[in-house]
Write a protein that binds this DNA or RNA. Structure first.
Lengths: 198, 198
DNA sequence: GCAGAAAACGAACGTTCGTGCTATTTTGCT
DNA sequence: AGCAAAATAGCACGAACGTTCGTTTTCTGC
C-alpha cells in the first residue's frame, strides 16, 4: 500500500468521526486539513471534490459497519442469538470511540433526507441493505422454527430501527441514563412477540 | 399588532419550513431574506443574532405543535382515545405542509445533539416536555383503569418516539410507502401491550 | 399633513467555504 | 545516486456566511 493510499485512509477515518458530530456537510476541507495537519489543497488533492469525499466517507463507514457489526453477528447461529448479536453490536457501534457524535448514518439520514444527489442515493442503498439484513435474519429464524409464521420481517426491521433511533435521541440529546436499558427492554419485547409458541 | 410584529411572524413561519428541510443552521439569513423578498439587513434587524433567530424559530414551532397536536389531543377522553389522538396528530404534524422537510424537531435533535448552547438547551426542554406529555397520558390511563399497572410510562414514551422516528426514516429517506402503515401497526402493538386485561 | 418613530435598504467588513492553478518536496524504483 | 512520479504546499479566485453601519423609505399618532 503506497503512502498516498495510507494517508487517504487516515483522512477517511478522521473524517468519519468528524461527520458523526457535524454531519457530512460539516466535514469541511479546512477543518479536516487542520485536524490532519495538512494543507487544504494537499488534502483536497486526494479526493477531487467534496462530493467524492462524502461518498468515500460513507463507503468507509459502511465497510466498518460490516466489519464490526454485520459480519461477526452473522457468525452467530440463526434465530434469537443472531438477532441479539446484531442488536447488541449495533448499540456498541453507535457508542464506539471512532464515532464521537453517535451513529454516522443517523446523522446522515436526517441530513440528506431531502437533499437529492449521489451521496443521498448511496446512503439509501446502504440503509436498505441494513434493513434487509435485519429482516432476512428474522426470516431465517422463522424458517428455522424459532419465530412464528405470522411475524413480519419488514415490520420487525422498521420496529428495531425505531428502538435504535429512540435510544439515540434519548441518549445523545436528552442524556437520559436510562435510555440504553429501555432500548434493550424494547428489543426484548419485540423478540418475545416474534417468538414461536413452544 | 404592529407591522414589525407581523413581518417577524411571517419570517418565523417561513423559517420554520426552511429549518425542517435544511436544519436550524441551514436557516441562512441570506436565503431567508431572499424567500421573503427582503434585504439581508432588513431581516436581520428583526432578530439581533442568528442564535436569537434560531431560538425564536424553535419557540414558534413549539407553539404550533402545542396548538395543533397537544391541545386538541388533550381534549379527548383519557386512555386510548387520548393516546391515539396524540399519535395521529403527531403523524399529521410531521407531514403538514408548513414542514416540507418533515418534523423540525427531528432535524434539530440530530443537528444539535452535540452542539452545546442555548438553542440546544431550549430544544432539550421542549423534547422533555413532549415526552412528559406522552408519559403522563399513559399514567392517567393507568389510573383510570384503561391500562394495567405494570405499564411503564417512560418506557412507553421512548417506545412511541421510536415508532415515530422509524417512520420518519423509512418515509423521508427511503420513500417506503408502507412506512406509515407499519408505524400505525407498531403503535397499536404498544397500546395492546399496555391494555388492561378486561 | 407633519413630525417622530419604526422598518427596510445598500454597501461593506472579515471569515470561511470549495476549488483551481503552479511550485516544491518527498517517495519509490533502477 | 539519480530520476520520474506522486504527494504536498502555497496562493488566489468567487461566493456565501453573519454582522455592522449610515441612509432612506414607510408607517403611525396627533
Amino acid at each position: 500500500m503506497g503512502k498516498g493510499t495510507l494517508t487517504r485512509q487516515a483522512i477517511l477515518e478522521r473524517a468519519t468521526g468528524l461527520a458523526s458530530k457535524a454531519g457530512l456537510e460539516g466535514v469541511t476541507i479546512g477543518a479536516l486539513a487542520a485536524e490532519m495537519e495538512l494543507s487544504k489543497s494537499g488534502l483536497f488533492a486526494h479526493f477531487h471534490s467534496k462530493e467524492a469525499l462524502q461518498l468515500q466517507v460513507l463507503e468507509f463507514a459502511a465497510a466498518q459497519f460490516v466489519e464490526h457489526v454485520i459480519r461477526p453477528a452473522l457468525a452467530e447461529p440463526r434465530g434469537e442469538p443472531r438477532l441479539r448479536a446484531l442488536f447488541e453490536r449495533w448499540l456498541g457501534w453507535s457508542q464506539s470511540s471512532p464515532l464521537p457524535g453517535g451513529c454516522l448514518f443517523v446523522q446522515a439520514s436526517v441530513e440528506l433526507d431531502d437533499r437529492p444527489g449521489s451521496v443521498r442515493e448511496r446512503l439509501v442503498g446502504i440503509q436498505r441493505q441494513w434493513l434487509g439484513v435485519i429482516a432476512t435474519s428474522l426470516q431465517k429464524g422463522i424458517e428455522a422454527g424459532a419465530f412464528h409464521d405470522g411475524a413480519d420481517p419488514e415490520q420487525f426491521a422498521q420496529d428495531v430501527y425505531g428502538v435504535m433511533l429512540a435510544y439515540h435521541h434519548a441518549s445523545r440529546l436528552l442524556h437520559d441514563p436510562r435510555a440504553e436499558t429501555r432500548a434493550r427492554r424494547a428489543f426484548e419485547t419485540l423478540l418475545a412477540a416474534a417468538r414461536a409458541a413452544h
